[in-house]
Amino acid sequence: MDADGSPIPASRRPGRAATGNASGRYEPYVRSAFDDGWASDETLPPLRTEVTEERPRKVITSNESPDVPFDRSLNPYRGCEHGCIYCYARPMHAWLGLSPGLDFETRLIAKPQAPEILARELGARGYVARVIALGTATDPYQPIERDRRITRRLLEVLAAHRHPFTITTRGTLVERDLDLLAPLAAQGLVQVGLSVTTLDPGVARVMEPRAPSPLRRLETVRRLTEAGVPVRVQVSPVIPGLTDHEIEAILSAAAQAGARAASATVLRLPREVATLFRTWLEERFPDRAARVMARLRELHGGRDYDPDWGTRMTGQGAWARLLRSRFDLATRRLGLKELPPPRSDLFRVPREPDPQLSLF
């Protein structure tokens, strides 16, 4: 879709999930493509990833949601090149005057000063350490991290302060940082949540087009576990009629790879994500699109999305109870248990070098 919602040709969006680039909800105008009569044989090039930079005033974000087990988070990037069509963070791009569609996947914002700002926040007078969730909105190990290394530098700051944190990712680049993560895990300071939504490589390729394959993610679970890093597999989101039949298989594969815990949430489609997902579903899986959406509405009280606390991530009704029962039975059978939270009692603020030479 162009800014007005019309589709963008598939030739211009290889390796992308969204089909268009509809204007964000805050934009005062909608741009429309139309034929002005000047026919042209010019073929526009494929969309490329663009990265700009910002310097935020702060990087630790607080939240009061009762649906998540943390009250502060940290994200080194806005937008995500993995391009998962279901990503609940897509609407945040509208705050920037960009589209939650293809802009979210191709027009990324990096925060190169984030490590220095984090160090300042952790060193502030009166700061109290509690678990920081890294990568809750966009993936800290998306492809641009390979060159930008912002996540790597954030880990170095957290390690210097012995600050507890968790990582949520579907990126195998997390293996690069095992030299930092393994010693922190030995002190009980870190956990990694690795998302595995499907084991079907075909579904994964069109649903999460630039994320590593499911089998490669399971290999990352194994490597992290062998290094002593506790891993939770996240079967999220569960998509009824498309991936829900794989719950047990994903959990079994994750347990075999060494995962110690598991979690699951059902698909949620806030704001612009609902239209993006429906359009994607009709293009990629036209034979089951109506069934998927009907089942999803059963989970969300007849709507595409239920924003209410307590039900938005689990769904409600008979199907929600069935999914939860299947998940609970499988995790008990496989020995996947809850992980204790990372410890906060080791936190310290590194001392600045004393410019005065010591006499002793």
Rank of each mutant, 00 (worst) to 15 (best):
W38N: 12
L102M: 02
Q256F: 12
I60S: 06
V190I: 09
R223L: 06
R324G: 02
S32W: 11
A33D: 12
E226N: 05
T151E: 05
V192G: 01
G171A: 08
M313F: 06
E246R: 00
L339P: 09
Q256T: 15
E64W: 08
S6E: 12
E283P: 13
A294R: 11
A22G: 15
L199Q: 03
A254W: 02
L323A: 00
R351N: 14
G20F: 07
S344I: 12
S325T: 11
R31H: 11
G228V: 06
R268M: 09
L329D: 13
T136D: 01
W38I: 14
A39Q: 13
T49D: 08
G24V: 09
A94R: 04
R12Y: 04
R217F: 02
I250W: 02
M92K: 09
R120C: 10
A185G: 07
S23C: 15
S213F: 10
Q191E: 07
R278Q: 15
V266E: 00
P28V: 04
M293E: 12
I8W: 01
E298H: 00
G202T: 15
I60Q: 05
Y127M: 13
F285P: 13
A264K: 04
L118W: 03
A249D: 15
E54K: 09
P270V: 00
E248V: 15
R232V: 10
G20K: 08
P353R: 00
L224C: 04
L158D: 05
A10L: 15
T172D: 06
D71K: 10
A294W: 06
R25Y: 13
R25S: 15
L189N: 02
E283R: 14
P56Q: 10
R149F: 11
A33R: 13
P164N: 07
P100E: 03
A262P: 10
P45L: 04
R260W: 11
R90Y: 00
T138R: 05
S40K: 03
E272I: 09
F70Q: 04
A114H: 11
R48T: 14
P183M: 06
A262V: 08
R321P: 01
A186H: 07
L339W: 08
I144F: 08
L357S: 14
R125P: 09
P45H: 01
P214N: 00
Q316W: 02
A204P: 12
R326F: 00
S65Q: 04
L359Y: 12
A185C: 07
T331Y: 03
R351P: 11
D200F: 02
R72V: 10
P9S: 02
F34A: 06
E145D: 09
T331S: 05
T166M: 03
I60P: 06
L98V: 10
V157K: 04
E64M: 10
V196R: 00
R12M: 10
P66V: 08
